[in-house]
Nucleic acid binder design. Structure first.
Lengths: 224, 224
DNA sequence: CATTGTGAAGTACTTCACAGCA
DNA sequence: TGCTGTGAAGTACTTCACAATG
C-alpha cells in the first residue's frame, strides 16, 4: 500500500477524517491532493516529529519482574530507545544476565549515565527505593524519568516525570463494566446516600454510547 | 485532615479550582459551603462512582515476567480487584506459586471464568498467543480485556479492550526531551526535507511551556 | 476528479465571577 | 466569613464544507 487517504486512516483510527487532515497539516503539507499520503514518507515525517528517529539511551533501575519484563520488551528498540544499562541495588543480581544484558550494580549508576549520555531513566524499583533512585538519577544528569513504582516522585524544575499506574487501565475497564450492568442496580446499591441520581441524568450527550477507540472517557478529576 | 477545599485539591492536582468544583458537581453536591469537602465522604463517593467499591474478580493469562509483576502488584487489591486465577499455557508453570497463588493451566480457563463470575481478563502473553486467548476469554463470557501484548485484538461488539503499550510513555518523555534540546538543532538534522519549519512556528499558544502535571500533550494523531 | 488543506461554523471544555449558603 | 455550586463568558477543539490542485 504505497499511499493512503485521510478517510482510510481516519476509519482505522476511529476518528473524523477532517480532524486527521487538520492534525497532519500542523506538521506540514505531506499529502497529495487527489491521491492521499505517501505512507513511507508520512511515517518518516511523523516519526521524526515524535523523536523516534533519534537514538535515546536509557537506563533501567530495578530489575525485578517488572524491570525484567520491560528489558525484554521488544517495543523499545523499534522506537529509538536503546537500553544502555540494567541496574539493580541487590548485589546478588549484579552480573546476572537479563534480556541478554548484564545487570550492573547501583554503585555504578552515575558512571553509566555519564559515559552513555543518558537523559532518560526508568524506575521499576519497589516504592521505598524510588525517590532515592530518582534523586541520584537527577543528580547524575537525567532529565526525564518514567516511574513504574507506586510513589509520587519529587523532582526539581526542568525534570519531567511520568508515572505509570498499571491498575488505572483496569479501573477504566471496571468503570465501563459497571455501566454495562446498568445504573438502576447501582442506585439501589447505594444505601440512601444523597445525590444518587448520578451524572447520567445530567449528561448532555449519549455518554458512553459513542465509544469506539481507546479513548478512556473517565472523569478528569480523580483523587491523587 | 478531615476536610479539604477545592483550592487545595486543585493545587495538588495541578488544575483550576473551578474546574475541579464543576467536575465534582456532576457527581452531586458533596461539599459544604464555607468549609470544603469532607475527605472521607468525598473519597467514598468518588470510589463508588468509579466502581472501586465493587469486587471485581479478574483472571490473568500469561504468567511470564510481566504477568508475575502484575500479580505481585499491590495496587489491584486496594482498588477492588481480586485476582481469581493466574493462568498459563505452559504445563511447566502449572502448580507453581506466583504472588502466593497457584498458576493454573489454560485448559481450565473456561471453568475458572464461569465459576468465579469473571468479566474482566488481563492478557500478558506473547503477541502470538494473545488473539487466541482473547477469543477464549470472550467465548467464556469475559466482556472487558486489558491487553499488554503488543498486538491489536479483534473482539465482537459489546466487548471492551484496552491496550497498554509500555513504550508509549517513554515516547512522550522522549518527545519532550527532544523539545528541551531545541528546535534549531532538529531542523538542521532533517536533511533538506520539505516543510522543516515545524509546528512551533504555527502554534498559537506557548506550546510546552505551561506543562506541569502528567498531561502528555502529544499530537492526537499517531500511526497505528 | 478524488482528495488535500483550511477558513468558518459548530460543539465541547475551561475559567470567571458571584449569588447562595453553612 | 469562607467556600461551594453554577450560569455566563471565554477558549480550545472538532467538524463542515468547499476551493485548490496534482
Amino acid at each position: 500500500m504505497p499511499t493512503v487517504s485521510s478517510e482510510e486512516l481516519a476509519a482505522a483510527a476511529g476518528v473524523n477524517s477532517a480532524k486527521l487532515r487538520k492534525d497532519f497539516s500542523y506538521l506540514g503539507s505531506y499529502g497529495t491532493r487527489g491521491v492521499g499520503y505517501d505512507v513511507e514518507y508520512l511515517v518518516y515525517q511523523i516519526s521524526r516529529e515524535l523523536g523516534l528517529t533519534q537514538d535515546w539511551p536509557i537506563v533501567m533501575v530495578g530489575i525485578g519482574n517488572l524491570g525484567a519484563a520491560l528489558a525484554n520488551y521488544g517495543g523499545f528498540a523499534s522506537r529509538g530507545f536503546r537500553v544502555a544499562a540494567l541496574i539493580d541495588a541487590d548485589p546478588a543480581m549484579a552480573g546476572k544476565s537479563v534480556a541478554g544484558m548484564p545487570v550492573q550494580h547501583a554503585d555504578d549508576l552515575e558512571k553509566i549515565i555519564d559515559e552513555n549520555g543518558v537523559s532518560i531513566g526508568v524506575i521499576a524499583t519497589p516504592a521505598g527505593a524510588a525517590q532515592q533512585v530518582c534523586d541520584r538519577l537527577v543528580a547524575a544528569g537525567v532529565t526525564s524519568i518514567l516511574n513504574f513504582a507506586p510513589t509520587v516522585l519529587s523532582v526539581p524544575d526542568g525534570v519531567d516525570v511520568r508515572k505509570v499506574d498499571l491498575s488505572i487501565e483496569l479501573q477504566i475497564l471496571a468503570f465501563h463494566e459497571q455501566r454495562k450492568a446498568g445504573e438502576i442496580l447501582q442506585a439501589a446499591e447505594a444505601e440512601g446516600a444523597v445525590g444518587v441520581e448520578g451524572p447520567a441524568a445530567k449528561v448532555t450527550k449519549p455518554a458512553a454510547a459513542d465509544r469506539k477507540g481507546p479513548d478512556g472517557d473517565v472523569p478528569a478529576v480523580m483523587p491523587a
